[in-house]
Amino acid sequence: MSLTRRELIEKATKFILLTPAAAAALEALDSGSIDTMPDKYKQAEHWWAMTIDVEKCIGCGACVQACAKENQVPDGHYRTWVERYVIDGYGDEQPEVDSPDGGMHGFPDKNRPGAKTFFVPKLCNHCATSPCVQVCPVGATFESPDGVVLVDESYCLGCRYCVQACPYGCRYIHPEKQTVDKCTLCYHRITKGLTTACCEVCPTQARVLADLKNPNDPVHEFLRNNAVQVLKPHMATHSKVYYRNLDGAVR
């Protein structure tokens, strides 16, 4: 190959100039198909959370049923569930925790004299700095701009890292899709102005969807007037599910 210096400089310059140009051209070809959501819902105006008043939960399991129906949750798996705690004492005793069928069909009575007992509804805590998101090797799970931890099931490898990483046990592998599945905070509902399916059916309003960026949301009053707690605060996950009247024994 014999190139004069002039030819080389010419070719190289063309290449240097044209490579980004080609990239830009390819980018432009695609940009038309990227949907920018031209609708009323503005992500930047929301920061979703939930409040749960443990003192109001009656363990009816309506939330678990509604979640399964709304989101086609496979049998034996739960995006939300209710736990029953029975605490005999605060010494060395471990609290007794059960959740038959996720609490979906309620709880048979367990009367132990002298024990303290209550229900705790659980779901994805939609952490602002989520361990599950940090471990995903491909970017299939993420915190959305409005504060919801979601899964891109078409991009998930099913590697289960996030299932292990979640300190709250909120993720499972979908038995048919073999990808990870979890609570979406009913993203398809809350972006339409509806509340989540679990909050919709909760008969005592023990759980209430909250938008922390909405100054008129009653959540601000709730947080101001009550002693609230998140689960496992020492994990620094910045959970956004706030519990009122949460017992220290709850993990």
């Binding site: 959501m37 992500q43 891109d152 991009y155």
Partner: peptide, 15 residues
């Protein structure tokens, strides 16, 4: 992450 997935998740039907 894939931006358009937000739209895909939102397309889930409401019961």
């Amino acid at each position: 992450y894939r931006g358009p997935v937000l739209k895909e998740i939102r397309a889930h039907p409401v019961s």
